[in-house]
Design a protein around this nucleic acid. Structure first.
Lengths: 208, 208
DNA sequence: GCAGACTGACTTATTGCTCGGTAGGTTAGT
DNA sequence: ACTAACCTACCGAGCAATAAGTCAGTCTGC
C-alpha cells in the first residue's frame, strides 16, 4: 500500500494540469470541437499519455464539468447546506454575486453555454449534467422565492416558479449577449434587472 | 440560354431539399457536429452529389442560416422597411409574435443558439452572422424604445439600450431553458416578462 | 543494504474510422 | 453538342482509442 509516493504526487499534479488545459479547450470549442491530441500537446505529453489519467474523452469532459461546478460553488463562498434555505433577499444577493463572478470568468460561462447547447440529445456525455443543473437551479430559486412570500418580502400573489424562470432567463440571456459582445455590462445589467424585479415583487402597494 | 429546363427545376428542388434536411442536422448537432455524408444520405444522394450544389460545407451552412433568417422574417409577417420604424408598443407586439413563432419551431431556435455558442471564435463560418444578428437586433430594439420615449409611451428617464439588452436577454434566456425543458411555457413566460417591463416603463407615476 | 517484484507515468506505433473535398466519368434532358 | 445532375473511386488529414513497451521510483523479503 501507499506505494510510489512521489509518482502519485506527480500524477495528481499532471491530472490537475490536464483538467486545467482541457477546461480551456472544451470551453472554447465544446466537447465535439476539442481534440485530445491538442490538449495533450499543450499539456506537454502524448495523447495516449493523457488517456493514462482518464479512461476516455467523455470521462475527461465530465471531470472538467465537475471542476467547473466546484469553482462555481467556491466562488460564491456559500455553505452548500445553506443554499437550500435561502429567502428571497438572500437569493438576489447570492445570484448577483454569482453573476459578478461569472463576469470575471468568461471561459467558465462559455463552457456552460456551449455544453448546454450541444447536449440537447440524450446521448451527449453532458446531457444529464445540463438537465440536472437546470432543474436544480430553478428549484433552488423557486423555493427561495416561496420563502420570500412566507416571510412577507414578496407579494403574496407572485408565482415563485415563473419568477425563478425569469430570473434565470435574465442571467443566461445577458451572458449570451456578453459572450458575443464583451462590452455588455453583465453584472450591471443583471443588477438593474433584479432591481426592477424587486420593485415589481414588493408587497407594499396592496397586501391583497 | 434557358437550357435544360426540367433539369434546372429538379436542381432547384433538390437544393431546397438539401437545405431543409441540412437545417435539421445543423440545428441538432451544430456546424461541427453535422456531417455532409449523413445529410446527403438522408437526402438520398451521395456526398459529392451534395457538393455539386454547394461548393463546401461552410457555404451550405451559410445557406441554411440565410434560410433561417428568411423564415424568421416571413413568420412575423412584417414589411422589412417597417421594422426600422417601430415604436415601443409595436416593438413589444412584434417581439411577442416572434417568440410565439419560435415556440413552434424548436429546431430553428436551437440552430440559432448552438451557432451562437459555437461561433465565438472569429474563424467560425458563422461568426459574422452571429455578431451582425446580435447587434442589429439590439439596435432595432433600442431605436424602437427611443421612439417610445419620444411618443410618451415610455417614461423619459428610461435607458433604451439597457432595456433592449434586457428584453433580448429575457427572450434568449427563456429559450435556453425551454430547449432543455420543453415544459417551460416560452411564449407565456415572455408575455409575463413584457407585462412586467411595461408596468415598470409606464410614464404614469411621475413625469419627472 | 540490496536484489527483485511491482507500480504509476508515461512513450511510440498503429488501428479503424470519419471527415471534407477532388477527379473524372456517366446519364438524361434540351 | 451541350449542360446540369449526379455517380464511383479516391485522397489526405484528423479523430479516439489500443497495444506493447520503457523507465524511474519504491516497497518487501532476505
Amino acid at each position: 500500500m501507499a506505494s510510489t509516493e512521489s509518482a502519485e504526487r506527480s500524477g495528481k499534479l499532471s491530472r490537475a494540469r490536464i483538467i486545467e488545459i482541457a477546461f480551456e479547450h472544451f470551453g472554447a470549442n465544446g466537447y465535439r470541437g476539442a481534440s485530445l491530441a491538442k490538449i495533450a500537446a499543450e499539456v506537454g505529453i502524448s495523447q495516449p499519455g493523457l488517456l493514462h489519467h482518464f479512461p476516455n474523452k467523455s470521462a475527461l469532459f465530465r471531470s472538467v464539468l465537475l471542476e467547473r461546478d466546484t469553482r462555481d460553488l467556491e466562488a460564491v463562498g456559500m455553505k452548500v447546506e445553506k443554499i437550500g434555505e435561502l429567502d428571497a433577499d438572500e437569493l438576489f444577493e447570492f445570484f448577483e454575486g454569482l453573476v459578478r463572478h461569472n463576469a470575471d470568468n468568461r471561459n467558465m460561462v462559455q463552457l456552460a453555454h456551449l455544453t448546454a447547447a450541444e447536449a440537447t440529445t440524450p446521448d451527449h456525455p453532458a446531457h444529464e449534467w445540463v438537465v440536472l443543473r437546470t432543474t436544480y437551479f430553478r428549484e433552488l430559486c423557486t423555493s427561495a422565492l416561496q420563502n420570500g412570500i412566507d416571510k412577507g418580502q414578496v407579494r403574496k400573489d407572485a408565482e415563485p416558479r415563473a419568477i425563478a424562470t425569469m430570473l434565470i432567463a435574465a442571467s443566461e440571456g445577458l451572458e449570451n449577449q456578453w459572450l458575443v459582445d464583451p462590452s455588455v455590462d453583465l453584472a450591471g445589467s443583471f443588477a438593474e434587472f433584479t432591481a426592477m424585479l424587486r420593485r415589481d415583487l414588493a408587497p407594499s402597494r396592496r397586501a391583497r
